[in-house]
Design a protein around this nucleic acid. Structure first.
Lengths: 186, 186
DNA sequence: ATGTGCATGTAACTGGTTACATGATTCG
DNA sequence: CGAATCATGTAACCAGTTACATGCACAT
């Protein structure tokens, strides 16, 4: 089975296929747009991953032939695939998770329940808060012997963390206002 | 020789040793503090990397014995090591470079010249600007068929990018005021 | 004709991780 | 007395990239 907390390309794929069936090439194209946030996998990992998902029964494929040309292969997520994805998406996020991992989940969040999404954001918020605190502590502790360049890097980290916090707070308060009744289907 | 643009652990090490000699364990400890920003390598990659740097003559080692116990190995960067590091640090940053790669360089920026640092920040600034533009374009283009969750992720990316831009502008204007010789830290 | 985009794939390699092995020291 | 931390290292494994191979369609 799939190692439950590894945020591999397999989940990328599953998440995208959950939104609509597409080919390997489509997946690549889609991900390229967001590559600076979450990175876009190479074909060398994409196609083998599709194969293995197929082998595990998490996706199905429809080869739609295009006379003469090699047929396009449209992949569709299966029920099992949905389950596996939901399972992954709902498990607690690992404390060492990067910004990238967080965005990736956010992107695949169509599979979240409303409350699942809220708790995801809360988890992130508390982690960012502790990062922030850690940096601030380092900054105050490091009066002794640190270069101004090190300070620069830490200050940078601090301002990113602050921005993240602000965004999370905004998003959470918006979600709190939205009454969850529309999304109660589950 | 070392592949010039790969931001491997080797440069982490070189950069830290450029600031002061330390052992493998010290390096690990130091990096752990900033792990959420740049990640901290495992011993399984750290020690072999030190070996290979030693083999390449980029670092020297002083085994300081501690009677009975296995001796601590304090690594020092060599002149060649300095050169290699400077070379890496001064080459243009790869457009697909992540936030992580950027912070890493910033952290190792004690090896930058003043102008080098400024140009580094400028490069980053223009890249972030294009990221921002790309996201905004996607958001406007995607009115058609996108889930609100996808919008959430994009909005998140946008606010991070905005914060980065703001920080970069601030840092750049500060550096512009500082005359290169007066390093008067605030 | 020539290159760029569509479309799929394989093989070799690499840069890491995880788990293991060892052993002394310090802290609760 | 046992657990955590200091401190070094190896070996097996793995997820990914790069480079390669193929071939059609469309625009310059």
């Amino acid at each position: 089975m799939m190692a439950s907390s590894s945020a591999s390309i397999r989940y990328y794929i599953l998440g995208l296929l959950a939104q609509q069936p597409m080919s390997g090439y489509d997946i690549k194209r889609f991900l390229k747009n967001l590559s600076w946030l979450i990175g876009s996998p190479s074909f060398g990992s994409l196609y083998p991953a599709l194969r293995s998902l197929l082998g595990d029964g998490l996706v199905n494929v429809d080869a739609i032939p295009r006379n003469e040309r090699q047929s396009r292969k449209i992949y569709t997520i299966t029920e099992t695939g949905h389950e596996v994805l939901r399972e992954w998406v709902e498990q607690p996020i690992d404390p060492k998770a990067s910004l990238k991992a967080f965005v990736m989940r956010l992107l695949l969040a169509s599979n979240f329940s409303h409350t699942g999404l809220v708790s995801h954001l809360h988890q992130r918020r508390s982690q960012v808060a502790s990062h922030k605190a850690a940096i601030q502590q380092i900054i105050t502790t490091m009066d002794n012997g640190a270069t101004p360049e090190q300070y620069l890097a830490l200050d940078y980290g601090l301002s990113i963390a602050t921005a993240e916090m602000a965004w999370l707070d905004k998003a959470l308060s918006q979600l709190a206002q939205e009454t969850p009744f529309a999304k109660t289907a589950d």
